[in-house]
């Protein structure tokens, strides 16, 4: 797989490219020994990578969170769940491929898993509508949560969406109402509900699935009321001010933990989830396991009460506190 480099990773691309070139030359001319030089370049690249990712700015985190090579819901389900049985449709209008979900086993125990799926190539991205759900997606999620509630299955949601789709049909079919009901249903179900923000937590489209008992975020994922570009164009009247907006919005996992909006951060491999997908997926799996364990054995009423209390108290402290 060719590595996609983000704009701030350009210097890194150069060094890694050089190392790769050297090795290619050596492959063509077996008598040449370049390993020493190549290894030196590797070390240089790693130092640079460490420097770049040591203190990522909020805007760079947005870029990493949107990286096309990050593992998506589909990858997590394939690796962490067994017997995944997708369930489709909202029984009303359509099946929305921007939200996938169904029955599956997690560590052998049956659960319902639901997540936004952005797609991994042009064809699947279009089919998935880039992870931007229409009302049908949220109504499918509601249906799956109902199923989980009736049969006492914990629910795991994976959050990765730029936001709900702003389209004509979506509006006509009640985008706002679908999101509102999905959020309400998250609050009503008497089973454990845990969420992990694996990429972008885009506004209402994310909340609709992330109103959970426990919420985790990957280290470089973001969760925000509006995209930095959208915020910049409204408050700065200039979409190019997205760096400033990303800073002001406090959309990083680190800030959200301080604000008490999320419960834990899942560490990403050096250079972001896209550089070691397997390790990222494994770490998310451990987190889901831990969060479900915390909630195991709780009565339905207690789970509902805890969830309500969590959101009622949210925002009681600001960053200054």
């Amino acid at each position: 797989m060719t590595q996609h480099y983000l704009d701030f990773e350009k210097p890194l691309a150069e060094i890694e490219g050089k190392a790769e070139e050297l090795r290619a030359v050596a492959r063509a001319n077996p008598e040449m020994n370049v390993e020493k030089e190549a290894a030196a370049l590797d070390r240089k690249a790693e130092t640079l990578l460490r420097d770049l990712y040591k203190d990522l700015s909020p805007w760079r985190k947005c870029q990493v969170a949107r990286h096309p090579d990050r593992p998506h819901t589909r990858d997590y389900i394939a690796a962490l769940f067994t017997e995944f049985t997708p369930l489709a449709g909202d029984r009303n209008f359509a099946d929305d491929h921007a939200v996938m979900g169904g029955l599956a086993r997690f560590n052998d125990a049956p659960v319902v898993v639901i997540g936004h799926e952005k797609g991994h190539d042009t064809k699947s991205r279009i089919e998935r509508n880039f992870g931007m759900a229409r009302p049908e997606g949220y109504r499918k999620a509601i249906r799956l949560m109902d199923l989980a509630h009736r049969f006492r299955l914990p629910v795991v949601t994976l959050i990765d969406t730029p936001g709900a789709y702003p389209g004509k049909g979506a509006e006509e079919r009640g985008q706002a109402e679908a999101i509102a009901r999905s959020t309400a249903r998250c609050l009503e179900i008497g089973v454990p509900l845990v969420s992990v923000v694996i990429g972008e937590g885009g506004s209402g489209g994310a909340v609709a699935l992330a109103t959970a008992n426990r919420i985790a975020m990957l280290e470089h994922s973001v969760y925000s009321v509006i995209s930095p570009e959208g915020c910049a164009s409204i408050l700065w009247k200039d979409a190019e001010k997205m760096r400033e907006a990303a800073e002001a919005l406090r959309l990083t996992a680190q800030d959200l933990l301080k604000l008490g909006v999320i419960d834990r951060i899942v560490k990403e491999p050096l250079g972001g989830a896209q550089r070691d997908r397997a390790a990222t997926i494994e770490a998310v799996g451990k987190t889901i396991e831990a969060m479900l364990k915390e909630l195991a054995g709780k009565k339905p009423e207690a789970l509902i009460r805890d969830r309500r209390q969590k959101f009622l108290e949210m925002g009681a402290k600001g960053l200054a506190a």
Binding site: A180, Y223, V225, L251
Partner: peptide, 11 residues
């Protein structure tokens, strides 16, 4: 109010 305004939806 950033993310905290978003959290008024579930609240």
């Amino acid at each position: 109010e950033g993310i905290l305004s978003l959290m008024q939806m579930p609240r």
